[in-house]
Design a protein around this nucleic acid. Structure first.
Length: 939
DNA sequence: GCGAGAGA
DNA sequence: TCTCTCGC
């Protein structure tokens, strides 16, 4: 290779491990597994990184640099260095050897040097190469490398989702770090520290402060020499931790004198070694990627792809034997396309004529995808900016709606007929949002729904379901990012209303277009995972129910809350005074850090006090409770915490969430976050309103019916999870207890302790209850022992007794785990799946976790299925009978209604029937319905 | 066990 | 970001 022209000497130095980690985490949202169970996410990510560089940058020279296990000078000088690094995830560790083979396959040299880190090797080689006339690119996501840049040395930050690769030279680094010399990056890092590498820095100094101080004093040394100009806590910290700052600086400095050669000939790049690379791609089942690299004739023959799975065939004669993980995800590559690379036709329907044409087109369709663009995220206050539609892949329509509400309504009314047509299916991503927005403009969406977010939630509940991620994963497509249009989140974020029409047309149409394409992919995946019925009959119809609950809202009695707030305020003040007196100092009780120091350093309540991983004392409830007999300050602190929590989280927060228009509180239910199938509630979270303590449950008095002519009805399933466990396991003892309508915890205690029902002590019942709950929540024996404050041995004994009595449950648990190991997933009564990727892990802790999830998910998930079905039926009954009463809350196993007095009996009958008969079970179900003038009375 | 939210 | 605490 000619080296006469310097511009041709282009060296890329890749920070191997850092890039691998990045690839692993970036691509691990949806796992990519080969047919024989290898997680190839990191390998594929790294391959894409390599290809990107080779193709787009055409380096003349290239190498990948790795650390070795040998300790470096940094470890010798500073013991804690990188000591807190977490162990490498297991599936990543398995992937590493493949990555080494991959690099070899590309015929790229791997450089290591015992006793030196990759950073140092890269730094040294970069500087030498620069002297020899190279332009050098250090490829790493690591910010520390900023210190290396010069006129001919650049940082090459690999492409991230949606963003292209970034090349940082001197000007960029100076701007980013707000410094005048790249070397000052080291000073900033020395002050700021780096939690990942365990570089301590100086306490109390973060990124912002570090930049400011270095701008002012030039370097850490300069700062230390000028501490007299600092004030207060900062001054103290800099003075006390000066030494630590200097050590940190040393740790952050990349060495430039590693004894290693710059072997230009070895680094010169020619071409991949096809003989090595092609079979490796085949083994990894990189079909798309293989075609890209080797051309269309690249195929994976059966012989090759089975190479590594041979031994498994012994065990899987006629079943696949492997988790049925969505294959589209396994096959997908890093996004290769965007709106700029794919042909599309997005129309602007901005005249009455065009809109009428579009309505006609939609009216003729069986289903269409649509999306609304609004000025905000809150469906109950955001204004509509436009609507987009898609009927065919690659074609979209955007209808802008003006800021004037009446004008907007006029345009939207033309679309009312199609949106409200029950015979036309509606496809959307998080349609509940659109339903709520539209209804504020007088449009009440109807028709069968297909929500791509919920579809994916059923396909793989543990991963993320945002549209951007789904598009990247399943369509290899990066959608236009919202930040491109209106800027990053925060104060400065602009409004959708102000975006240029052309841009918003492209963005909005793309959303509808992608949603449509995702539906095409998800429909068969739902069938594959047998969750199509669950989607069509439960999750999709439930969207309408939840939208209606949210809209109905809950009335809050602000005066009651104000009274409670005053009472709490006084108590908090009293406790505060008492705590300060007993401690002999005033401090911030709400700061666990300060509290720990007072309790354990000053008062010495426990010489063996435990610390958290960040070095603070642990001050959790269980820790404090154990100290209660040492000093009555402890009880005061616990009370203080309780009052403070009640006040800030509930009593004072709820009134601020009242909607000005309706005077009610409108929570938001999220249907796609809890992996078990449960709902979650936010803004406010109505699913964690206190009930356990006398003081806390007062808050429930403030939840009231909308007027005196209404009452609240609260209906809840009694012991639903335990009944489901009895049902699923068919354990005859537990089923019998329910058939005889016994107090289940008492019955359990009687069995576990071998006594009569009548002679069960309250402690025995409490323990039995804890075991029952432990199983439902998938707790470990350790968790149980902690919960009951008994030794692990005692806990294990109770559990043994439990399983001896309930052998059906024991068998059910081991069968479920066995099945999960084989299939890779567990399922609920309605076939809701949960994949358990760690169920076969060699790591006991990790596997134990997956095993407990295997038990827990079917039970909790079936309960969720059941109440969802009941909700849909009740909702339908309310509509069919034209009732005035409303469903207003769901709290996992409880439904709350706001009902006119005249309808109370009708409602009780409907609720009871629908809840009891949601699923056909052998175990009897109990539904308790209460009635009252507030939630506390009703419950 | 999970999820939400407050506060430092 | 971490720690703590509320519900189920």
């Amino acid at each position: 290779m000619s080296t006469s022209n310097n511009s041709e000497k282009k060296l890329f130095l890749l920070d191997g491990m850092a890039l691998i980690y990045r690839a692993y985490f970036a691509l691990n949202k949806v796992p990519r597994l080969t047919s024989y169970g290898l997680n190839t996410g990191a390998i594929m990510g790294f391959t894409n990184t390599l290809l990107e560089v080779l193709k787009n940058q055409q380096p003349s020279h290239i190498a990948v640099v790795f650390d070795t296990d040998a300790p470096t000078q940094r470890h010798i000088d500073f013991e804690a260095y990188k000591a807190q690094r977490e162990k490498m995830p297991e599936d990543l560790a398995t992937a590493i050897p493949y990555i080494f083979r991959l690099i070899e396959g590309f015929d790229i040299p791997i450089i290591t040097k015992d006793g030196y880190e990759a950073d140092d090797i890269i730094g040294t080689l970069a500087k030498r190469a620069e002297q020899n006339g190279f332009t050098v690119y250090c490829m790493t996501p690591d910010k520390d490398f900023g210190q290396l840049v010069s006129d001919h040395i650049f940082i090459y930050k690999p492409a991230r989702m949606g963003n292209g690769a970034e090349i940082l030279g001197v000007p960029e680094i100076l701007e980013k770090w707000e410094v005048t010399d790249p070397l000052q990056v080291i000073d900033i890092l020395g002050l700021w520290g780096d939690a990942v590498d365990n570089i301590p820095g100086i306490p109390g100094i973060g990124e912002k402060t570090a930049k400011k101080l270095i701008q002012e004093y030039g370097s850490i040394e300069g700062l230390i020499a000028n501490t007299d100009k600092l004030k207060g806590k900062q001054k103290e910290n800099v003075e006390n931790f000066a030494e630590q700052g200097l050590v940190s600086k040393k740790l952050a400095t990349i060495l430039l004198d590693v004894p290693t050669e710059l072997d230009e000939a070895a680094l010169a790049y020619t071409a991949p070694n096809k003989e090595l690379l092609e079979p490796l791609f085949a083994e990894l089942e990189f079909r798309t990627l293989g075609k890209r690299v080797f051309g269309d004739d690249f195929t994976i023959t059966d012989a090759e792809s089975k190479k590594s799975s041979g031994q498994m065939d012994l065990f899987s004669a006629d079943k696949s034997g492997f988790p049925d993980i969505p294959t589209a995800a396994a096959e997908a590559t890093v996004a290769e396309h965007s709106i700029n690379t794919i042909a599309h036709t997005y129309h602007l329907a901005d005249t009455p004529e065009k809109q009428a044409d579009l309505v006609q087109l939609l009216a003729k369709s069986k289903e269409f995808a649509f999306d609304t663009e609004t000025t905000g995220l809150d469906a109950l206050s955001a204004e509509i900016v436009g609507m987009s539609f898609a009927l065919k892949k690659g074609i979209g329509y955007y209808v802008p709606t003006p800021a004037d509400r009446d004008d907007a309504i006029q345009i939207m009314t033309t679309f009312q007929s199609v949106l409200e047509d029950p015979s036309i299916g509606k496809i959307g991503q998080n349609i509940k949002y659109d339903i709520l927005v539209l209804s504020r403009y007088g449009i009440h969406l109807r028709g069968a729904l297909f929500d791509t977010m919920l579809a994916h939630y059923l396909i793989d509940p543990d991963t993320r379901h945002g549209m951007d991620v789904l598009a990247e994963t399943y369509l290899s497509y990066t959608p236009v990012s919202i930040t491109e249009l209106i800027g990053a989140k925060g104060k400065k974020q602009g409004s959708m209303r102000d975006v240029e029409l052309e841009k918003i047309k492209e963005y909005a149409s793309e959303d509808a277009d992608i949603t449509l394409q995702l539906k095409e992919i998800f429909q068969p995946l739902l069938q594959d995972s047998a969750t199509e019925k669950l989607a069509q009959e439960v999750e999709f119809p439930l969207v309408y129910v939840l939208a209606s609950i949210e809209q109905n809202g809950v009335k809050i009695d602000v005066d009651t809350l104000k009274t409670i707030s005053k009472g709490l305020e006084q108590d908090v003040a009293k406790l505060e005074a008492s705590i300060y007196e007993k401690a002999g100092v005033t401090f911030n009780i709400a700061s666990p850090k300060q509290l720990g120091e007072v309790l354990f350093d000053k008062l010495q309540l426990d010489p063996k006090a435990k610390k958290t991983k960040t070095g603070q004392y642990k001050t959790g409830e269980d820790v404090l409770l154990a100290l209660a007999d040492k000093s009555d300050i402890v009880q005061d602190i616990l009370d203080f915490r309780q009052m403070q929590k009640l006040k800030s989280t509930y009593v004072d927060a709820l009134p601020t969430l009242i909607n000005a228009e309706t005077g009610l509180i409108h929570t938001s239910y999220n249907q796609a976050v809890a992996a078990t199938g449960r709902l979650s509630s936010t803004n406010p979270n109505l699913q964690n309103i206190p009930i356990r303590t006398e003081r806390g449950r007062e808050v429930r008095k403030a939840f009231i019916p909308r007027d005196t002519d209404h009452v609240l009805l609260s209906a809840d399933y009694s012991q639903i999870e335990l009944r489901l466990m009895a049902e699923l396991s068919q354990d005859k003892n537990m089923m019998e207890a329910f058939q005889k309508n016994q107090d289940i915890h008492r019955a359990t205690a009687a069995r576990v302790y071998g006594v009569d029902l009548e002679s069960v002590t309250s402690e025995q019942r409490r323990n039995a209850k804890a075991v029952n709950f432990g199983i439902i929540y998938g707790q470990s024996a350790f968790g149980l022992s902690q919960n009951l404050k008994i030794s692990r041995k005692e806990a294990a004994e109770i559990i043994d007794q439990y399983f001896a009595q309930y052998s059906g449950i024991r068998d059910y648990m081991s069968n479920t785990i066995e099945a999960a190991k084989e299939k890779g997933y567990v399922e609920t009564i309605m076939k809701r799946r949960r994949y358990l990727r760690d169920i076969n892990s060699a790591n006991m802790t990790v596997r134990g976790f997956a095993e407990r999830n295997a038990i827990n998910a079917p039970i909790q998930g079936s309960a969720a299925d059941m109440i969802k079905v009941a909700m849909i039926h009740i909702h339908q009954d309310i509509l069919a009978k034209g009732l005035k009463g409303k469903m207003i809350m769901q709290v996992h196993d409880e439904l709350v209604f706001d009902v006119p007095r005249s309808e109370v009996d009708t409602f009780k009958e409907i609720i009871s029937q629908r809840m009891k008969n949601a699923l056909k079970l052998q175990v009897p179900l109990e539904v308790e319905i209460g009635e009252g003038s507030n939630w506390l009375e009703a419950h």
